[in-house]
């Protein structure tokens, strides 16, 4: 819609919007995170929801214990191979549309514990991640910045339900829950989601 026309109408007391704008506005200002703290970053996540850094301003105050009621999973802390099947299972149990924030260096790539026989080198090997927050641990302000970035991302979401539903269903089918194998997880990564370019420097 023409911006000039919009502001003219606003002066006359008529507010215009589109369905997708208002739908996304409602969704992004009431994100309900899943109470999913794994390690040290969880403490900074709790500190973000406390009175000084106040996550409640963003509508994200209610941390749901159950995945069926949450739409944002903040993976905060190191994901180990023993825990990885549970993380994927929880992700699959969340209803869509859902978002994942990988908080901290451990969730992005294994972090300081990268040389670990039990450490999963990044949760994006198995589930699609929307926002990565670097830091060890990232400050509460960094988590707030990530929430705001996620809100901007949600504002640009499209409302084509049929197409999105088909995409989601395809994704869910391709999201096998890994099993703890003999030496490593089986499969060690989900090739459809995680396929980085090999890095060879001279």
């Amino acid at each position: 819609m023409d911006e000039g026309l919009k502001s003219e109408l606003q002066k006359a007391g008529i507010f215009t919007t589109t369905l997708s704008e208002i739908y996304n506005w409602g969704r992004r200002n009431s994100l309900w995170p899943l109470q999913f703290g794994l390690a040290c970053c969880a403490i900074e996540m709790i500190a973000t929801s406390m009175s000084r850094y106040d996550l409640a301003r963003f509508g994200a105050e209610v941390f749901r214990p159950s995945p069926r009621q949450a739409d944002l999973m903040i993976v905060s802390g190191t994901v180990t191979k023993k825990m990885a099947p549970q993380v994927v299972r929880l992700y699959k149990q969340m209803p869509s549309p859902k978002y994942v924030i990988a908080m901290g260096a451990c969730a992005i790539s294994g972090g300081p514990f990268k040389q670990g026989y039990n450490v999963l080198k990044g949760i994006d090997r198995f589930i699609p991640v929307d926002i990565h927050i670097p830091g060890c641990p990232p400050r509460p302000e960094a988590l707030l910045h990530a929430i705001m970035t996620l809100q901007r991302k949600i504002a640009g979401d499209s409302l084509h339900w049929d197409r999105r539903k088909a995409e989601e269903e395809e994704l869910m089918a391709d999201l096998p829950i890994p099993e703890c194998g003999v030496h490593d997880l089986q499969p060690p990564k989900n090739a459809k989601i995680w396929n980085p370019e090999p890095v060879i420097r001279g």
């Binding site: 294994g110 990268k114 060690p188 980085p196 890095v199 420097r201």
Partner: peptide, 8 residues
Amino acid sequence: PDDYEYEP
């Protein structure tokens, strides 16, 4: 298990 990218 060899599962992390070696950074040169």
